Computed example of a mutant assay.
Amino acid sequence: MKYLSTSALSRAKGLESKELFETLKTKGWIYRKDNQWLLTKDGRMAGGDTKYNPKFGEYVVWPSNLNIEQEIDSKTLLNATKIGEAFKISNRKVNLYFSDLGWIERDRDGWILTSSGKKNGGHQMEMNNGVPYALWKNEVLQNKHLVRIISIGEGELDEDKEIIETTNEVIDIRKKFPADKRTSDGHYVRSRAELLIDNFFYRNGIVHAYEKKLNIDEVMYCDFYLPANKIYVEYWGMENDEKYLKRKQRKLEIYAENDFTLIELNDEDIENLDENLESKLRKVGLKIH
């Protein structure tokens, strides 16, 4: 998302700069103090942010697609505590589930929204001490991805039972390649290559999930997921199968569309897995110690 200063935004929208400043002030999104425009809580919820320039100091910026007509009422938004009350869980758990969904990330002892979080109704806020946090539209309580991940996490939904609701292709693959190979940490995987990959994560103390369902509308499972760094890992092991290659292409499109961090492995990588996988992880910001 491109962000513009208020003056630049006025030019982009064909408005007089003075007119836009006055409109934003009237809406309660900015206010004037010591000859400087500052952002309010409602202004931040509307999408505003701040940037710093060494010469001019801090100034307010706005998303280029800012909807000036929108109305913001912070009283109608929910914090993690209110959401936790609705699901009968703690606010800490709520934020961890949001993090698992990829909607928020840790920052300065608090949480900042990701692009996915903003798309799902999140509004970035900041406490007086500078700690960031998020508020959410009431509709988040009915968000199927949030409801699903909380239900699984709280033991109210058996994820394996969801398989019967997936495509026949997923069911056929699981029948054709049963997960009967036991890894060092007790996971059961479907191939020797997956066993070696899983054992690599275990040996190096990397928390990982196997065949995790992606939090998207389309039914899709990744091979491995590293929750601490939001990294997905795919091993492409059936390159001679036309149906498999078609599915592979669709999965790559999904990863790109959702801006997910993906590591790809093939048979050549497996031959020298420790060196190859460590190198690929390092390139996406995860160093092996």
Rank of each mutant, 00 (worst) to 15 (best):
P132W: 03
G47P: 04
R11S: 11
L262R: 10
N168T: 12
D49A: 15
D223P: 13
Q124A: 13
E16D: 14
D109I: 01
Y188E: 05
D100I: 02
E268K: 14
I83Q: 02
A46F: 00
E242V: 15
N258R: 05
M127H: 14
I288P: 13
I171L: 10
K251E: 08
M125H: 11
E156V: 04
K82D: 10
A228P: 01
M238A: 12
N53P: 11
G57K: 03
T76G: 01
N266Y: 03
L146V: 06
N258V: 00
S184F: 07
K246D: 03
V61W: 05
N168D: 13
K118I: 14
E69H: 09
I112E: 05
F98G: 06
W37Y: 14
Y255Q: 03
L38D: 02
L252G: 10
Y3V: 10
K51P: 02
T166G: 10
D160C: 07
E156F: 11
L262V: 08
A256N: 12
T6Y: 01
N168W: 10
L141C: 06
E139K: 15
R192C: 02
V131R: 15
K287E: 15
Y59E: 02
L265A: 05
E253I: 08
Y52V: 06
A8R: 12
L265D: 03
G57L: 02
F224L: 04
L66I: 14
D107Q: 14
G122K: 05
R190P: 10
L146W: 03
I216W: 06
N168R: 13
T23R: 12
L78E: 04
N129L: 01
S184T: 06
E16F: 04
N53C: 13
E169S: 15
D198N: 13
V140Q: 04
R44T: 08
D49G: 13
Q124V: 07
G47T: 00
K27W: 01
K248F: 04
Y202L: 02
Y133L: 07
L141M: 08
L135S: 04
A179Y: 08
K280E: 08
Y244H: 09
E71Q: 14
I89E: 00
R44C: 02
G43R: 01
L78I: 06
G102Q: 02
K88A: 10
K25Y: 11
S64D: 10
E218P: 09
S7P: 07
V233N: 03
R106S: 12
R174G: 05
Y210W: 09
A193I: 02
R192G: 06
D274Y: 11
V61K: 08
I216S: 07
W103I: 07
H289Y: 12
E69R: 05
I152H: 06
F177E: 01
K181V: 13
I288S: 04
Q142M: 11
D42E: 12
I68G: 00
Y244S: 08
H145R: 06
R250K: 15
F87T: 05
N138T: 11
S279R: 14
N266F: 06
N128M: 07
I254H: 05
K181Y: 09
K181L: 15
I254P: 00
F200S: 02
V189I: 10
N91W: 11
I171E: 05
I206Y: 02
L286M: 11
L281S: 06
S191E: 03
N91A: 15
N53F: 04
K175F: 06
V189S: 04
E159R: 12
V60G: 04
L113D: 01
P227S: 04
G121N: 00
G237R: 00
W103F: 10
D241Y: 01
V189L: 00
R174H: 12
A179W: 00
